[in-house]
Design a protein around this nucleic acid. Sequence first.
DNA 1: AGTTGTGAAGAGATTCACAGCA
DNA 2: TGCTGTGAATCTCTTCACAACT
Lengths: 231, 231
Amino acid sequence: MDNQQPANENTDQFESVPTVTSGQIPPATAHRLGLYLRELQHFHRAGVETIKSNVLGNRLGLSDSQIRRDLALFGEFGKRGVGYDVAGLVQALRRALGTDGTWNTILVGLGNLGSALIRYRGFQQQGFVLRAVFESDPTKIGTLIDGIPVFSIDSLEEKVPLLRARLAILAIPAQDAPQIARRLADIGIAGILNFAPVSLPLQKELAIVDVDLAVELQRLAFAVANWKESR
Amino acid sequence: MDNQQPANENTDQFESVPTVTSGQIPPATAHRLGLYLRELQHFHRAGVETIKSNVLGNRLGLSDSQIRRDLALFGEFGKRGVGYDVAGLVQALRRALGTDGTWNTILVGLGNLGSALIRYRGFQQQGFVLRAVFESDPTKIGTLIDGIPVFSIDSLEEKVPLLRARLAILAIPAQDAPQIARRLADIGIAGILNFAPVSLPLQKELAIVDVDLAVELQRLAFAVANWKESR
DNA sequence: AGTTGTGAAGAGATTCACAGCA
DNA sequence: TGCTGTGAATCTCTTCACAACT
């Protein structure tokens, strides 16, 4: 592809950032943030107050130096000779991820996967509030599922602005996905979690995270076949 | 972590590899293989015989040079001035992924997510054969769901060898996952697709691919909050 | 004319190794 | 003593740019 971004010019001429959570988090680190948060929350719930880089690293299959590099970005939660403050890190990571507040989210598609997702409580806990489901099957429209209203897919344009939803979870067949994604982009959805097994060529308009179960299984098969390492 | 691998010693003293699908595929490329295969299969089904690196790149949000670098690993499917042979690449990718044959797979957990997965036909098409489900709820044990037998979780050790299953899909609560994963490792499962929101510290014993829906949503939120790029 | 394949350059990520601090 | 924080080295990945080929 022909590149679009003009520059990488490290513009830290004056790093005016006030306190913590400094300038920029490198993509590779960003990718791991959610995992760190998850494991730290486990430790936090278990009453652990302090954690060492090599313990967290073992848990996640990462090197201790990598953990230190990453966590050093968040300021001063580490104490030499002791470890990192779990509670402080949990808070800092949520802030860095942008999940210290809440995100209004919609689900599109109420098939097998959509139905499972609507009942999954894992995200509510992390600040994602499922506001509505959109579906084309008329027998489901107008009902409430687990307290979440099911609207017609035709009412996307009407309802989404009212719900102030910024994220959408797409759990529909591949053939319908590009068209629906297009509509979501047009009404101001800022990010799509895409379960449809097709690539949505909208990377320039909004954020997309793809989760394709078949692709994940293929990655697993490859890792097994080339037994060496996985991640 | 203290490193385990002794070396990277490029041992290509004599690269005895016979024909195509040469020595080693770099991890970053390996990660993309499933996506390439998926998109190429779409094109293949649509009757497209030849595809150019920039078309595939646009579709996937990758640069044309990256596509070329990656595909060049698989031999001579590209023709200058023309593009790549879709059918040939599909075959080569399936072979490289190790999904040109079939993989016997089991599902552990028949909650919301497990129930959705059992009905998902996406993997069967890619060579993953779901042989059985294991579950602890006695009201479900002994039934058939979508033609797949549901066994007691207690019979894992007995049944898995008979089924010759090498892959397991883990869709159970976080609290149970480490213990079940341990048992799967002990009975020779070679890879786990882990949906439980917890890290399984077995990276050294088998291949693990984690899919944590909350973590994926967090990645999405981060990408939106730091609007720049996603992957 | 048009697109691949690939050296070389550039950017980014990880690990090493140890100084610095509690 | 023990662990973090971090320069420097290393390794890996991506992009550039153009020769090679159809």
